[in-house]
């Protein structure tokens, strides 16, 4: 069986302690939570950290709660908790859409939202989900907290705004009335990474799209924020024709590469289909018309 290379292990007892360790140990240190992205890379010896800081004991990072006009999710919240949370499903049903198709239920018992976002794999579903709902990432370091929008969080493939000596602690999502959301994914088989995925959130006011977020997974080097499509949609009355136009923009604005999951033209096609579907379902949910 493949086995990781040697490393030192420590268990954090507080967020401050974990950050202090990160600072002390430098770039050779990695945080481990669910471990379902990091450990397979370590077994392949693609990741060879010298130190692992285990944050699984930090219960204070595991929660989903309403705080004023925001919904807050602790970084250590596991996929299974995101999937089962009624609070989250009520406000942002796209989380449940996504969680139903992320890896498999056993993996979801361990993997965390923080781990998924920090892995920053372009095919990772929660990155698109968080982008669509305009979430913000709370990053803590020795000097305190900073909050960055998802568009600034994903810097490139496998690279995030979380710097050396910092950790992601929370995801915050603004709560607004009239919202609906959906996540759509095509995969080769249950549990596989997406060939393409689309997340959409809409906020309807007076029959018009007051605001909208659309993001794509697996069709570019990192999560794709569809700002041109959002501009098109904002202020207009929702319709299938409009969503199809948004889909065309999605197809044009993504930058997929060919791989074992499919060629470029197919992925562009899926970007369009899934964007259209996600917008349509998100709108139906906002209007409480979902079939």
């Amino acid at each position: 069986m493949q086995t990781p290379a040697s490393f030192e292990y420590e268990r954090a007892t507080s967020v401050e302690g974990a950050i202090a360790s990160l600072q002390r140990l430098g770039s050779g240190a990695r945080i481990i939570a669910g471990g379902h992205s990091l450990l397979p890379m370590m077994k392949l010896r693609l990741a060879n950290p010298e130190h692992l800081i285990d944050i699984n004991d930090l219960a204070e990072l595991s929660y989903i709660r309403e705080q004023g006009d925001e919904l807050s999710i602790g970084a250590l919240t596991r996929h299974v908790e995101l999937e089962k949370s009624e609070l989250l499903a009520r406000h942002f049903p796209l989380f449940r859409d996504a969680e139903n198709v992320i890896a498999d239920p056993v993996v979801r018992n361990r993997g965390t939202i923080g781990g998924s976002l920090c892995q920053a794999d372009a095919a990772e579903d929660l990155s698109a989900v968080c982008s669509a709902v305009k979430a913000k990432a709370v990053i803590r370091g020795a000097g305190g907290e900073r909050v960055v929008g998802m568009e600034d969080f994903h810097i490139g493939p496998y690279v995030t705004a979380v710097g050396e000596g910092e950790m992601l602690t929370e995801v915050r999502i603004p709560l607004r009335p009239g919202g609906g959301s959906a996540h759509e994914k095509v995969e080769r088989r249950a549990g596989d990474w997406a060939i393409a995925a689309a997340s959409a959130a809409v906020w309807i006011e007076g029959g018009k799209i007051a605001d909208v977020g659309v993001a794509l997974g697996a069709v570019g080097p990192t999560t794709i924020h569809l700002s041109r499509a959002e501009e098109l949609l904002r202020g207009k009355a929702p319709s299938e024709g409009l969503f199809a136009q948004a889909g065309e923009i999605a197809s044009a604005d993504c930058s997929p590469s060919a791989d074992g999951r499919g060629p470029i033209d197919y992925k562009r096609h899926l970007a369009s289909v899934l964007t259209t579907r996600a917008l349509s379902r998100a709108t139906a949910r906002a209007l409480h018309q979902e079939a």
Binding site: M1, Y9, L39, P40, L44, N56, V106, N109, R110
Partner: peptide, 29 residues
Amino acid sequence: WGCDTSNCGACVVQMDGQPVKSCTILAAM
């Protein structure tokens, strides 16, 4: 164990009552 990539489930045990893949968890954890 049957794979190295958390895909096969041959290694599933329960951790605090939940099924988990024991090939992708450190004993230390």
